[in-house]
Amino acid sequence: MIRYPIFEKDATIGVTAPSSGVQSQLHGIVNEAINRLQEQGFNVICGETVWTQKKAKSAPAKVRAAELNQMMADENIDLIIPPWGGELLIEILEYLDFDHIQNKWILGYSDTSLLMLAITLKTGIATAHGTNLADLRGEYSDETTTMWKSVLSTKKNESIVQHSSDKYQKEWQHDTPSPCVFHLTEETNWKTVDGNKVQIQGRLLGGCVDVIRHLVGTPYGDVRTFSEKFIEGEPIIWYLENCELSTTDLRRSLVQMKLAGWFENCSGIMFGRSPANMPVDNYTVEDVYQDLAEELKISIIYDIDCGHVPPQITLVNGAFAEVEVESGKGRILQTFC
């Protein structure tokens, strides 16, 4: 059985940096986000790793792991949100105390998705792929991003619906900050490989392909044991997003996942919008999706609200999902069962 953490209105949020910390000139971003959360009634406890960054990491692996272990063990902390992702979170996995992880939420994306997928696969504790701390600093949030609180507040055996966004952000405009953080200018259009309506059901698993692919073949990426132990062989819906990979590197990564058995008993795959997906020798990302759909004989949905092109739907690893896509619009019902 999947274990779902409890999240209340007056929750205490722990902020730690298991991957990248925040450089001194950007500390204001963190302070703004903390202030916004406090205005909403949350308590915030900030770790030391948040404020440092050197050589592509917030601190040495053992230091990052120790702070995360401490926050995971602290019964006063209900939710952990890193400031953002990064590059080298994988270094801390061998130092994490998976046997004593408390049942609490972790929320984030990018490099954080590697941590969350590893925790769900090893422990059966649900984790939440969605916004990071830095993106909560605005005076207000868009309707899609704001749903993170409602999703995490969902109780066991209850359900929550999220819909595709109206518009998404094409590119970051740091020189022209807005009260909403994001500049949502482009029409959202969820797509399917065959262009037809798609309906799929299954348990959600996923994250950023760039990093979660490195769990393949390790003790932290045992999808088969997770399936047998925690979801009794129910079908899996994978949600995946590409941060920096070319189409051929994405293809190699997906084939590796397939050969490792990650897509066994898979009912469908959803791909997030991507700032990457650069074609190689006219091999496009649509070709990648087509090849995968034909090989696995499953539905492929793409350009969903997930990943490095905001806004993002909050997707819960381990939750049972019913997904429907038609005419460019998407609906995801998640049940915490």
Rank of each mutant, 00 (worst) to 15 (best):
V288L: 06
I200S: 01
I269L: 06
K54R: 11
I212Y: 12
Q40C: 02
G41E: 02
V181Y: 13
T146K: 14
H27C: 05
F320D: 06
T247A: 09
M71P: 08
N265G: 10
G85F: 03
T335I: 07
T131P: 10
F320T: 09
L133V: 08
D194V: 03
T188D: 09
S274E: 09
V22W: 02
P83M: 01
L88G: 08
Y109T: 14
C306S: 14
F182M: 00
E324I: 13
T218I: 08
E171A: 15
I313G: 11
W238R: 05
Q312G: 07
F98R: 07
D99K: 12
K57D: 04
T127C: 15
T248V: 14
L254N: 00
G307W: 00
G328C: 11
S141M: 15
V63N: 06
G318M: 05
E241Y: 15
I45C: 05
T314R: 03
I6S: 12
G318V: 07
L296R: 01
E264L: 10
T12R: 10
S165T: 12
L254T: 02
V193T: 07
A33K: 00
M270D: 06
C180P: 04
G272R: 03
K170V: 13
T123P: 05
P275S: 07
L26R: 13
H100Y: 10
Q162A: 04
S246R: 08
L79G: 00
I300D: 05
H308K: 11
L254P: 01
K170P: 01
R213H: 06
S24D: 15
I269W: 04
E232L: 12
V280C: 12
P275F: 10
Q162W: 01
S299W: 01
A260C: 09
A56R: 13
K55F: 10
Q290T: 15
V209P: 08
L292R: 03
D111V: 09
K122C: 08
A56C: 10
I101G: 06
Y239I: 09
V323W: 02
G307M: 07
I304M: 10
M116S: 04
A134D: 14
N69T: 04
I231W: 03
M1L: 12
A260Q: 05
S20N: 15
Q162C: 08
K156H: 10
S58Y: 04
I45D: 03
D175S: 11
P60T: 04
L254I: 14
V309G: 03
N31A: 13
I332D: 02
G261F: 12
L93N: 00
I77S: 06
L136P: 03
C180N: 13
L68D: 06
G47V: 01
A33F: 03
E241V: 13
K167A: 13
T284K: 10
C243A: 15
I298C: 03
K9T: 11
T16E: 05
I119T: 02
G130P: 00
I212L: 12
